[in-house]
Design a protein around this nucleic acid. Structure first.
Lengths: 216, 216
DNA sequence: TGGCCTACATTGTTCAACAAAATGCAAAGA
DNA sequence: TCTTTGCATTTTGTTGAACAATGTAGGCCA
């Protein structure tokens, strides 16, 4: 996601925490104590603070002044917002996509990986491959800023996925749809591909909302 | 911009630095020494580091590992990218705008302020009012994430404005166009307003590019 | 029981120190 | 003279401890 020519320690720790959060080890709403977590991770409080800033900017943590940081709690409005923005971003980028673009290879790769993960029953892997597919769609647009923004949305969405069960319903139906979109794109029918993507995202949003409603 | 219920010290310092940068006190490409700047601002190195993280995320500073932070140098591709994203964001938000939305009042306010600043010959003020107008357009969409993203783009663009001369050419022509867009919106013609905005942004981009080319 | 007040715990910020990395300079060699 | 190697210096990266400021919890008193 990030081009990351920066093997800085805070970024490494941020990756660890990201995995813990999206992996469900940290439950949403949970408070993260600076002192204790710093000791757990073997880093200083100051460095951990920098990590918190990073993840807060990404929407994975919520920072309340003088009260501490908490694992973000995905809300219904947040999910609606994220899907609206995904439509706003991904559909035009796909529509102006061009078959020889390097990102197309990454789309193909994502489709293949998703199939492999599906065969192995690893639904979390399928979800990651799915997200990689959509990141590649945005990459078609060659806008570094838009890619970074979309990556943020994806991270926040993964947080929501993490606490939902029924991963098969969330990710399964989209493996073949991804393949269809990719096929239209490589045959030069970018408009047709984009036309598929809108309903695709609607369907995905409905699935998430349903699983989310079952929670509350 | 930021709802900012956080009067945190780093944010305050960040505002100061933002002003210094967009105000042209710091020249692009200039390196900022942690120790010296911390002493100048009367804060600790650690806190300054946090400020650097903030402004780096906003695109105003560039951070090179183990080398320090530098004032970002606006590039031609960056400007092209920013304007493309502004079109992608602002036009749809305006098109789905609705006359009773609270943000409309902020658009009106921005138009009025721009006129006042123009009368006073304060072109930098006009530029700020202009940006407030466009921020209000995005606010029509009621997406907090999109507003934050757009604010980032605006900050980066202000950096480019700061080092360009001819502010009258950059900001002057758009005062009346803002008023026209607003008028169409309040009369319920959101589509017409959006139709004006596209060419408007094209014209603005051309003006920036021209001034920028004169620099190099 | 309900509201206030005090003690405690946590965050916000600073300071001083050391390790790691990059920069600049100077000397040695071709 | 030009290049290259190595060293000293400077700057960043990270740590740990300290203190102030704020929020929280529990007990006390009416």
């Amino acid at each position: 996601m990030t081009p990351s020519p920066d093997p800085g320690l805070p970024e490494q720790i941020a990756n660890q925490l990201r995995d813990r959060i999206t992996g469900g080890l940290l439950t949403p709403g949970q408070r993260l104590s600076e002192a204790q977590l710093a000791a757990d991770l073997g880093i200083s409080r100051n460095t951990l603070r920098e990590v918190f800033r990073l993840l807060t900017r990404e929407g994975l943590l919520t920072h309340m002044p003088n009260r501490g940081v908490f694992v973000a709690r995905p809300s219904m409005p947040a999910i609606v917002d994220i899907y609206r923005l995904r439509r706003l971003i991904e559909v035009p980028m796909l529509a102006q996509g061009w078959p020889q673009h390097p990102a197309v290879a990454r789309m193909q790769e994502a489709v293949d990986h998703a199939r492999l993960f599906q065969a192995a029953g690893d639904w979390r892997g399928v979800g990651s491959a799915n997200m990689a597919f959509h990141a590649a769609i945005v990459a078609l647009g060659d806008s570094p800023r838009l890619m970074a923004f979309h990556a943020q949305l994806a991270a926040e969405l993964r947080l929501a996925f993490g606490l939902l069960d029924a991963p098969e319903l969330l990710h399964g139906p989209f493996i073949d749809q991804n393949a269809q979109i990719l096929q239209r794109l490589v045959t030069g029918d970018a408009a047709g591909a984009a036309a598929l993507l809108g309903p695709y995202l609607d369907q995905s949003e409905r699935a998430v909302m349903l699983a989310f409603a079952r929670l509350a």
